[in-house]
Design a protein around this nucleic acid. Structure first.
Lengths: 127, 127
DNA sequence: GGACCGCTTTACGTTTACGTAAAGGGAACC
DNA sequence: GGTTCCCTTTACGTAAACGTAAAGCGGTCC
């Protein structure tokens, strides 16, 4: 049976963050751990949220944007208007990801060229 | 014959930036326009640099990181050690882009699932 | 020659995402 | 009961990336 709760330092180690950062995410409404006295107790759900946060960070999302994405996770107890707004948000996110995909492709191409030039310069310096 | 020089507001419009931002990039060493008196005159090369900057921004790069990438463009007048450092930097960048590619793939998958759940909730609300 | 326009510099302000003390709670070990 | 951990709160500090006045230069249109 796998672990179901985590301390702040466990999660900090796992995701290479500081406890300070994790508390800050809670402050910004991205996490909501339960408590044992003063100590925070993180659930599997919190861990999933953290995973989304660090992934978002690698893609340049702000914490506010990651929070919005996290909130897209659960469509229950929403009215029709809210559901339509969710669909729009999903489309916007997806469009952005498509653009990032193109950007990555172009950057990779340019890096490949840069590498070629670099190797050429290395060869020419060895004469 | 295509345009070879640009004013700051032309580039600002083209890349959807403010003149203030463009001047800031120069301040940080990413651009080096020539001058006509006080006025800045941007070359095609500057424009290419700007394009790299905004692309980097979309991928979450800092200006310092974009500046490093821009400097990878020209391997001339570098010694062997510098060329080796350039190759390492290229590898590091490429690895990061690979990770971002995976992140995008996962996010797209999750968005697809979120959309499904959303549509399902919409249907169920229409009974 | 005055008004406007676009560009300039200088400089202080702002947001985001934490870092970094400082001071304390609580359980565990000796 | 003292020390050691690991956690906590409060609060001020900081780096990055600009925003935002304020004040001035230089050409041009009327």
């Amino acid at each position: 049976m796998s672990k179901t709760t985590f301390t702040i330092s466990e999660l900090a180690r796992e995701f290479d963050l500081t406890p300070r950062a994790i508390r800050f995410y809670e402050d910004q409404g991205l996490l909501s751990p339960s408590r044992n006295g003063l100590q925070r107790i993180y659930s599997k759900k919190d861990r999933v949220h953290l995973k989304l946060i660090v992934r978002g960070k690698r893609l340049g999302l702000s914490l506010a944007e990651s929070r919005d994405l996290i909130e897209l996770y659960d469509p229950t107890s929403r009215n029709k208007k809210q559901l339509q707004a969710m669909l729009d948000a999903i489309d916007t996110s997806s469009t952005r990801l498509d653009q990032q995909l193109k950007d990555i492709q172009m950057m990779q191409d340019e890096l490949t060229e840069a590498r070629k030039r670099c190797l050429k310069a290395l060869k020419e310096s060895e004469n």
